[in-house]
Nucleic acid binder design. Structure first.
Lengths: 197, 197
DNA sequence: TACATTTTTGAATGATCATTCAAAAATGTA
DNA sequence: TACATTTTTGAATGATCATTCAAAAATGTA
């Protein structure tokens, strides 16, 4: 017995490419402020195609958030790869976050969505928690390496420091939104690193 | 010539009290997710009374945010007043922020609204910027006092440290929303203070 | 008490929301 | 080429949105 033995018409568009457009729109406007009409315009897809392919606004958002987080993590991993030591890798990730905040000119979708949805949307909350934990976990590993290399105070808790980096990122993005002062944020990133000594 | 020489009917409700109800609703749900119908229910006022008194949803939100920020500042000032030294005052404010995050169980309206509205609502952006600057300014003064008393490193920039406290608050609220782990946040607040040494 | 004026009431308005659906168009396989 | 099946299309749906408005109720002053 063959499943899908007759295929008929194929989709005319690239699913990942259109999901990318949806992701960018949610990123810019936030979940609630993005309407299906906006998505239809931006994705250049009719409602029927969006529902048939992605299921609906909420499922589309969840996939958008997953794509955003996966790409973010790649950005940070790439920045870390070029570094000469674990501490340099951590510094490179912090620099990358600041660079992103001021060039992309919109706040991290993960942070934005945490404040918008964590309390009201259990499904989104679970994903936000998981993706944040993944970023913290990546940083924690680097911090342990830096501690082993005696670049970071080995008496301080690695997970706490890793979380504090992510905590600072949220604030960096807020400061970018409100004051758009890159020098000030770079100065704060030095304080952040001082707390690891 | 008399303006309002004839007064006729007076308002049946207390404006500040109903504004407080609106503030609590915006605080819980965020601007976009709060509907006028929600406000009518919560404020126990008809649409006509809300429009006649406050002007509309946006103006009502702006007044709600002002009220929230004024009350926040009072909370922090009260916490600081009881302290024995400038550094103790700063510590008390940080403790108060964490205590608020975990007892109120919803993120600071100023932080939430920064991520929701800063990029799309110029009027809200101006107010958010102003209110954040006021909090930073209050902390900066305390830091300068602590530096004069040699409780905080006098070689570090007071404004940067003050801003870094507010930056950390944003992240503390995010962590409360996602992980609800008060111990972790308290540990991070120790790192924050370490960065001032 | 009379009444000019304000407040309250809640239905009405027109726009927009997410979602559904039936018909038309397209196409892989037989 | 024939056609079963899928995709596309975009109008239709019913709910909800912020806001307006006209009529009823209330009241301070004369």
């Amino acid at each position: 017995m063959y499943l899908c033995s007759i295929m008929a018409r194929n989709k005319e568009f690239d699913i990942a490419e259109r999901l990318g457009k949806a992701k960018d729109l949610f990123w810019e406007k936030g979940y609630n402020a993005t309407s299906m009409h906006d998505l239809v315009d931006t994705m250049k897809l009719n409602p029927g195609s969006i529902y048939g392919t992605f299921g609906g606004k909420h499922q589309l958002f969840m996939e958008s958030l997953k794509m955003y987080c996966a790409q973010s993590l790649v950005h940070y991993e790439n920045a870390a790869t070029k570094a000469k030591s674990p501490l340099d890798a951590i510094k490179a990730i912090i620099q990358k976050a600041i660079e992103r905040a001021f060039t992309e000119d919109k706040a991290c979708l993960l942070v934005k969505s945490s404040f918008e949805l964590a309390k009201s949307d259990a499904e989104a909350h679970a994903l936000l928690k998981q993706e944040s934990a993944a970023l913290i976990s990546m940083l924690e590993k680097l911090i342990r390496l830096a501690q082993a290399a005696d670049e970071i105070n080995p008496n301080k808790d690695a997970k706490t420091m890793a979380t504090f980096i992510v905590v600072s990122f949220a604030g960096f993005w807020q400061m970018q939104l409100l004051f758009n002062d890159e020098t000030m944020v770079r100065n704060m990133s030095k304080l952040l690193l001082d707390s690891f000594r």
